[in-house]
């Protein structure tokens, strides 16, 4: 069956089986491999994308269900080719990753959090990423990355940059 999806602001048409998950459609049909396949039953969060701005598991949706929504993948966050979004940049700077498998999902989850809550507490951040499993970092630097991104987005980083 044919599905028409709106991903990162562009319309894509893919020929899928009814049983093709949105995750497999993104990766195998559309070449958007930033959404990672981990557990494929909704537990690890590696496949997290944004559906109308809210994080969702792309392994728990069939592509056939996904028409009509604004889907955002990690490929859609950078402002221009070769650049990084503020959140992506913060993850690099604080070393908020090791193997990187959970990273696109962590960044999208953080991006969504900061869109609705520009100055989250540490607890807000922990709660927001509680559905994303990272087996490398122990989460500490991921939380720092989100805190740094929040400060930068709030424009309160002038003093820090001057150092």
């Amino acid at each position: 069956m044919k599905v028409e999806l709106t991903i990162n602001g562009a319309t894509h048409v893919a020929d899928v089986e009814a049983r093709t998950t949105l995750l497999d459609c993104l990766r195998d049909k559309l070449g958007l491999t930033g959404a990672h396949a981990g557990c494929e039953h909704g537990v690890c969060g590696a496949c997290t994308i944004l559906v109308d701005g809210e994080p969702a598991r792309s392994c728990l949706m069939f592509a056939a269900q996904a028409d009509g929504y604004e889907i955002t993948t990690i490929e859609g966050l950078a402002p221009a080719p070769g650049e990084l979004s503020v959140v992506q940049d913060a993850f690099c700077e604080t070393h908020g990753m090791q193997c990187g498998y959970c990273t696109p999902a962590m960044i999208l989850t953080a991006h969504s959090l900061l869109s609705r809550n520009p100055s989250p507490t540490r607890e807000d951040i922990v709660e927001a990423i509680s559905g994303n499993v990272c087996r490398c970092t122990g989460y500490g630097q991921i939380i720092e990355a989100v805190e740094l991104a929040a400060r930068r987005l709030a424009g309160s980083n002038a003093a820090e940059d001057a150092r």
């Binding site: 559906v51 809210e54 994080p55 969702a56 949706m61 509680s130």
Partner: peptide
């Protein structure tokens, strides 16, 4: 109920 990413769907 679940996590925010499951509550959204």
């Amino acid at each position: 109920v679940g996590h925010r990413p499951t509550r959204s769907r």
